[in-house]
Structure formats: structure tokens, C-alpha cells
Amino acid sequence: MTSARTFVKGHGTGNDFLLYADPDGESPLSDSEVAAIADRHTGIGADGVIRAVRTAAEPDAADQVAEAEWFMDYRNADGSIAQMCGNGLRVYVAYLEREGLLELEDGATTTIATRAGTLTVHKELDEYAADMGLWSAPGGEAALAEGFDVTVALAGLDEPRPGLRIDMPNPHTVIALADLDLLEQVDLSVAPRLEPEPEDGMNVEVVVPLGEREVEVVDEDGAVVGTERVGVVKMRVHERGVGETLSCGTGACAAAVATRQWFGDGAPDDWVVLVPGGQLRVVMLDGGGVELSGPADLVGEITLLD
């Protein structure tokens, strides 16, 4: 079952994963096995487990065989299935490279199959930029205009706060707070309570918008060629099936999308999202797409014993 299986530990800004190769789809893990391996006290410990399987060998990817060779089978730490994971997607591509399952030169792009559809990942030196697909608001234009469509009770705060639901396509609810002291005050070891309550759970991002700043733009040779305006937001996250994590890729995208909506007309398309595990860059693309870029670090190899 899980004996003698080797995993690679990786993370993207502290959002950590255990990855293993199952090219022919012969060794999927059960929900309970994933939960046991991801347990931080009695297992190896991770926010999620990622299985590398060819699309041709995975029923969930049957409609993506012509577009991508590899499917990212992502499970949350409790064993539940997630559509995809932004930080995990970058780490997954780095893992495929390490294992010799994918060759990706600097500046090149690959396509990966996920439960959210096929997504492209572009390699940029030691970082990766992933096209995260289209975002949507379950509450529609009315929710976007109002700025919220649910109420969220957060442990550590004395009253519920309004939140805006954003699908990436993982479900997220973003709550804005007035200052960094309140952000630190929130206790995300306790699952936030939403009204109305979602049927399939919810990822919750608590954010403090920090305004805008000018950053330098450099060319391929490293020379500064100008500046651009970016928005900045600081974020903490409670992931469904996991708890508080140091980072969340789709959550960072949802936080940037929601904050941009709150800023209104003239808000920047580029965002820096500060998370406890580091920094991510989110760019709004034409047509409602979102690009997420950041590091992908592989830190060790672990073999399970009997």
C-alpha cells in the first residue's frame, strides 16, 4: 500500500506538499492514506498530497489527453479532493522536471491537466508563472457591486464581517480588515463560520489592503527600463480541509481579485500579495484570466517505512 513509497517534499511560499510519481495510474492513495501521510504529528506532514499521473491513465483527465501529458491529482491534507492548487501547480512542474518526466527550458511553457481544466505554466529563471484560468463571483454582478455577499464570523474578532465570494475555481471568501493589528488578532486555528453556510466548505482569506506602490521594470538583461504601479495586499488564509496555511495560491488570486473590485475604477492589474510564507505576484489578464507567479522549492525526499 504505502510501504516503500518515496515522496518529495516541496513548498511554494510555505504552502507545503508531498509529491509522488504514479505515471501509469496504478497506485492512487485512498482518502485515509492521504490524511495519514499528511498528518504533521503521526505522518510526514503537509498541506496537501500531489500525485503525478499521465492524463491517459487518469479517468478524471480523459477529456484533456490531447492537451496535456500530465495530470495533477491534488488532495487536501484531510484526503478530500480539490479542483487544483496554485502553489501546488508550480511545485508540481518543478517536481516533474526533477524526476526527468518533463523538460522545460527557461522561458518555455508547459500545459498541465487539472480538475479545473488545462492550465499553462511558464518558467522564469527560478520561479514559475501559472495561468490560473478565469475567476468568477458566485454572487454575480450584484455581489461585486455591493462588495460582499456573505457574513463571516472569525474567532478573535468581536463581530461578524462581510465577505465577498470568489471562485478560482476553488471556492474562496475574502474579508477586508482595517489594519494589521486586526489581521494578527484573527484566530484562524478555528474554522470561520459563514452565513449562508457553504455545502462543500470554503477557503477564507483575511486581508488588509496596503495601497499601491511603484516597482522597477527590468528587461531580460537585468537593466531597469521603467516603473509600473502595483497594488499590495497582506493576507492570511484558512484552507478547507487543512486549517491555517502559510500561503495559498488560488487564495492569493482571490484576494487580489476582491481587493481590485473594492478599489474600483483605475485599480492596478498587477498585485503583490504578502503571505506569512513570502510573496506572490498576481496579474489580471484580459478576459477575466489570472496569472500567479512565485517560487517553487523542493526540499527533500522521504521514503515511507512498513
Score class of each variant (00 low, 15 high):
148 F>E: 11
149 D>P: 10
149 D>N: 15
149 D>E: 15
150 V>F: 10
151 T>C: 13
152 V>E: 02
152 V>C: 07
153 A>D: 15
154 L>I: 12
155 A>G: 07
155 A>Q: 03
155 A>M: 06
155 A>V: 07
156 G>K: 12
158 D>Y: 04
159 E>I: 09
161 R>A: 14
162 P>G: 07
164 L>P: 01
165 R>E: 13
165 R>Y: 10
168 M>S: 03
169 P>Q: 02
171 P>I: 04
172 H>Q: 15
173 T>F: 02
175 I>M: 03
175 I>K: 01
176 A>K: 01
176 A>E: 03
177 L>Y: 02
177 L>H: 02
178 A>V: 12
178 A>Y: 06
178 A>N: 09
179 D>W: 00
179 D>S: 06
180 L>M: 14
180 L>H: 07
182 L>A: 14
184 E>Q: 10
185 Q>K: 14
185 Q>N: 13
186 V>N: 00
186 V>R: 00
187 D>I: 11
187 D>E: 08
188 L>S: 05
188 L>V: 05
189 S>M: 06
189 S>H: 07
189 S>D: 08
189 S>W: 05
192 P>D: 11
192 P>N: 03
196 P>R: 15
198 P>G: 09
198 P>V: 06
199 E>W: 06
199 E>C: 04
199 E>I: 10
200 D>S: 06
202 M>F: 05
204 V>A: 08
206 V>H: 02
208 V>S: 00
209 P>G: 12
210 L>E: 00
211 G>C: 07
211 G>N: 03
211 G>P: 11
211 G>I: 03
213 R>W: 03
214 E>K: 04
214 E>P: 01
214 E>Q: 01
215 V>G: 03
216 E>M: 06
216 E>C: 07
216 E>L: 15
217 V>F: 10
217 V>K: 06
217 V>W: 04
218 V>F: 07
218 V>T: 12
218 V>K: 08
218 V>L: 09
218 V>W: 06
222 G>N: 05
223 A>P: 00
226 G>H: 05
226 G>M: 08
226 G>E: 07
228 E>S: 13
228 E>Y: 13
228 E>W: 14
228 E>M: 14
229 R>M: 09
229 R>S: 08
230 V>W: 04
231 G>E: 04
231 G>H: 04
234 K>F: 00
234 K>W: 01
235 M>W: 11
235 M>G: 11
236 R>A: 00
236 R>E: 00
237 V>R: 15
238 H>K: 12
240 R>H: 14
240 R>T: 11
242 V>F: 04
243 G>L: 08
244 E>R: 12
244 E>A: 15
244 E>S: 15
244 E>M: 12
245 T>D: 12
247 S>E: 12
248 C>K: 14
248 C>F: 05
248 C>M: 11
251 G>T: 10
251 G>L: 09
253 C>F: 07
254 A>L: 11
256 A>S: 14
256 A>F: 08
256 A>M: 09
258 A>V: 12
258 A>C: 15
259 T>K: 04
259 T>L: 09
259 T>I: 14
260 R>C: 09
261 Q>C: 15
261 Q>A: 10
263 F>P: 03
265 D>I: 05
265 D>P: 14
266 G>F: 05
266 G>Y: 07
266 G>N: 03
268 P>W: 15
269 D>Q: 11
273 V>K: 01
273 V>L: 10
273 V>D: 00
274 L>I: 13
275 V>D: 04
276 P>K: 10
277 G>F: 07
277 G>Y: 11
